[in-house]
Every structure is written in structure tokens, then in C-alpha cells.
Design a protein around this nucleic acid. Structure first.
Length: 269
DNA sequence: CTGGGTATC
DNA sequence: GATACCCAG
């Protein structure tokens, strides 16, 4: 056999072997339903993690969160929505599970039953529909907040769809979202899950050339006003929540982006 | 898309 | 508790 032929055969075997190993790794990863809550996973860019006011940050495979035990919900959920995550998969909705990675004990979904409020996803199920495990992972009770149905299916749903539109248009966005957790909120259920009066969503986009940021603060009620009416500066949300959303960002850039409530760089078509 | 309620075993 | 089916914004 000629030496050249030998090289080709070795190369083919090598490439084949690597491919099978990748398939094996992928399969192995999919067996993990809920991880230990320690590792920062590939779908969460550690660089963009906000600070925690509660000291309890949990990392799942497809998103991270900071859990507030007093309010029995996350103060923020963060994840990267890549363009390739966008999917039309129509998975069956599983039951909500108590997040085992929340050491203080996440709320049971029974608190929401007959409460009159939706189990409103913070990281939307539709944003993690690229595989069944990622989709199922959004059905943890650490990823929901009590939401009025007209709000959830109305302007909040419209915003979530706009985020997917931007993820497609700008080749991915990074998302941070949650309710504004304050003292003396109305609560539901035996575990007294707080019902926020406002919800926020912050986006940063850095793939299309110039880093840009936008933030929304929406009262917990449906609205027929256009979304851009709810654009605020990140600074104003930080004042409300006490959370520093981009502590790792270079200071001068952070200061500039977070002070702005300008939305001219974001298409509202 | 966002969800809830009820019957059945 | 799980599954199937029907419903609405």
C-alpha cells in the first residue's frame, strides 16, 4: 500500500472517530435532566452574569438564575438566545418540578394552582425548544413567576416574540429577565410566592459589530401601547432591584450603555 | 405563541 | 400523579 493511501485511511478513521465521540458526548449531555447547579454551562455566558442580592446563583444547562427565597422565585434568569436556538419544535409541555438545585427549596407549582395567576416562564419555553431537555429544563419552578394571564399572553408574550425576532436578525442576543421583587407584595399559595408589580427584560447584543443594549420595564398588566413605550435605562432597573446587571463589562462602556434609554439601534418592525 | 380546567384511571 | 382532550387571550 502506498504511503499516501495509508495517510488518507488514517485521516478518515480519525475524523470518523472524532465524529462518533462527539455524538457520544452529545448523547451523554442529554441524559442530564438537572445538573448540580454548580457549573456554568455553555448556554450561559459567564461574562454577562448579573450580581446576586440573595447569594444563591444556580446554573442549569440552558440558563442561570438567582433565587430569592423570601419571594420564592428568581430575581433574575439569564441565558443566551443564539440564532441557532430558534426552533419550531412542538414539544409536549411537562409538569413543573421543584428545582432541586435551589438549596433553600424552590416553591411547589401547587402555590399557583387556582390562584388566578399563570405560571409565567421567565426563560420562555419557546426560547429553549432546540432540544427536549433544554425545553423541559424551563419547567422548573425556579423559572416561573405569578403572572396575570392577560399580561402573560399579551404584551409580555409580544416582547418575548420580539426577542426571538432580534435573536434572528442580530445573530443572537443575551437575555436577563425577572420580576421587580419588593417588600410587601401580594402573595399566592402556602409558600407565599410574591406577585411582582413590574417585570423587566434586559438585552445585550454583541455579535453584529457594535455592542448594544436595551431594557424594558412593564407594569404587571396588559397594555396595547407599543413596546418601545416601555424602554427604560438599565440604570433605572438597577435602582429598583439593587442588582448590577453587567459587572464584568468594561466600566466606560457599561456606564454609557446602561445610562441610555435610546432604542434607535433596535428594529421595532 | 402564552397558558388553564376537567375527566379518567 | 399522569394523560388526554377542550378551551381562551
Amino acid at each position: 500500500m502506498k504511503r499516501k493511501t495509508q495517510y488518507i485511511i488514517i485521516a478518515v478513521l480519525l475524523i470518523g472517530g472524532i465524529s462518533f465521540y462527539e455524538i457520544y458526548l452529545e448523547d451523554k449531555e442529554q441524559q442530564v435532566v438537572v445538573d448540580s447547579g454548580k457549573t456554568v454551562k455553555s448556554n450561559t455566558n459567564e461574562f454577562f452574569l448579573p450580581t446576586s442580592t440573595t447569594g444563591q446563583i444556580v446554573h442549569h444547562n440552558s440558563y442561570s438564575l438567582s433565587y430569592s427565597e423570601p419571594h420564592e422565585q428568581a430575581e433574575w434568569v439569564a441565558y443566551e438566545l443564539k440564532k441557532e436556538h430558534l426552533s419550531n419544535s412542538n414539544f409536549k409541555r411537562p409538569y413543573f418540578e421543584i428545582d432541586p438545585a435551589v438549596k433553600t427549596g424552590a416553591a411547589h407549582w401547587r402555590n399557583y394552582k387556582k390562584s388566578g395567576f399563570d405560571r409565567g416562564h421567565l426563560c420562555p419555553a419557546a426560547d429553549r425548544a432546540y432540544n427536549q431537555n433544554a425545553y423541559n429544563e424551563t419547567f422548573l419552578t425556579s423559572n416561573i413567576s405569578p403572572q396575570r394571564h392577560d399580561f402573560n399572553s399579551g404584551i409580555w408574550n409580544t416582547l418575548e416574540q420580539k426577542v426571538r425576532y432580534w435573536a434572528d436578525k442580530y445573530n443572537g442576543v443575551y437575555v436577563i429577565t425577572g420580576g421587580v421583587l419588593e417588600d410587601d407584595l401580594k402573595t399566592i399559595g402556602e409558600e407565599e410566592v410574591s406577585v411582582p408589580n413590574q417585570f423587566y427584560k434586559i438585552l445585550i447584543e454583541y455579535n453584529s459589530g457594535k455592542t448594544k443594549m436595551i431594557a424594558f420595564l412593564i407594569p404587571h398588566e396588559n397594555s396595547s401601547f407599543p413596546l418601545y413605550e416601555f424602554v427604560v435605562s438599565v440604570d433605572s432597573i438597577e435602582t429598583l432591584t439593587g442588582i448590577d446587571y453587567f459587572p464584568e463589562l468594561e466600566d466606560s462602556l457599561e456606564d454609557k450603555l446602561e445610562a441610555s434609554s435610546d432604542y434607535k439601534n433596535w428594529s421595532f418592525n
